[in-house]
Computed example of a mutant assay.
Amino acid sequence: MSRPYRRRLPFNLALTVSAPYITPMSHSKFKDNFPNTLWSALSRGALLKCPRCSQGRLFQSYLKPVHNCSNCDKKWDTVRADLAPAWASMTLSAHVIVVVYHFFFFDAPIANWITTSALIAIAALISLLSLPSFKGLFMALVWWNRMEAQQG
């Protein structure tokens, strides 16, 4: 006898398929792709794919989420990441910049304005490249914990 489909929650409260807001769609292709763990949902979001089905795109442009997933029809308008992705990308770029400065520019006989300009350019590039992945990751986290905004 097979076990009923359960979605694992971060706080170990198992809810069965009788709850309509947790139930995956009825067709089998969606049940196969539904994430079983938080980590799989986070990795799907970080790869800019729909955390729910991993087939559709999460963004229609650089940081603008799609209205509905093209595969599972999940509404991504209500899932907001706010400022967490910006803080995460700035933290990542700051840590990288400290390492780059320490190993490459600390004792280099280069003018200070060149060093500063290079570090600013590297920090901006890292922040801009990592921002969409962090936003997808935080949108997946918000969706997994069911903290979506309510439509009035």
Rank of each mutant, 00 (worst) to 15 (best):
I122P: 13
I122A: 13
I122R: 07
I122S: 12
A123I: 01
A123P: 05
A123Y: 02
A123S: 13
A124P: 08
A124F: 04
A124Q: 12
L125F: 00
L125R: 01
L125N: 04
S127Q: 12
S127G: 12
S127K: 02
L128V: 09
L129A: 01
L129K: 01
L129Y: 03
L129Q: 03
L129P: 05
S130P: 04
S130E: 07
L131A: 02
L131S: 00
L131T: 02
L131N: 00
P132S: 07
P132I: 06
P132F: 05
S133N: 10
S133K: 03
S133V: 00
S133H: 03
S133T: 03
S133R: 04
F134C: 08
F134Y: 12
F134V: 11
F134G: 09
F134R: 12
F134A: 13
K135F: 02
K135R: 14
K135W: 02
K135H: 07
K135G: 00
K135D: 00
G136Q: 12
G136W: 13
G136P: 11
G136L: 05
L137N: 08
L137R: 12
L137D: 06
L137A: 12
F138D: 00
F138K: 07
F138G: 01
F138E: 06
M139V: 07
M139Y: 03
M139F: 06
M139C: 10
M139T: 04
M139N: 10
A140H: 04
A140I: 03
A140C: 05
A140V: 06
L141F: 15
L141Y: 13
L141S: 11
V142D: 08
W143T: 06
W143Q: 10
W143N: 03
W143C: 04
W144E: 09
W144I: 04
W144S: 03
W144M: 02
W144Y: 10
W144Q: 03
W144C: 06
W144L: 07
N145F: 08
N145P: 03
N145T: 15
R146H: 11
R146W: 07
R146S: 14
M147A: 14
M147P: 09
M147F: 11
M147I: 12
M147G: 14
M147L: 13
M147C: 14
E148S: 13
E148Y: 08
A149R: 11
A149V: 15
A149E: 15
A149M: 15
A149D: 15
A149T: 15
A149G: 12
Q150C: 15
Q151N: 14
Q151I: 15
G152W: 08
G152A: 14
G152C: 10
G152F: 06
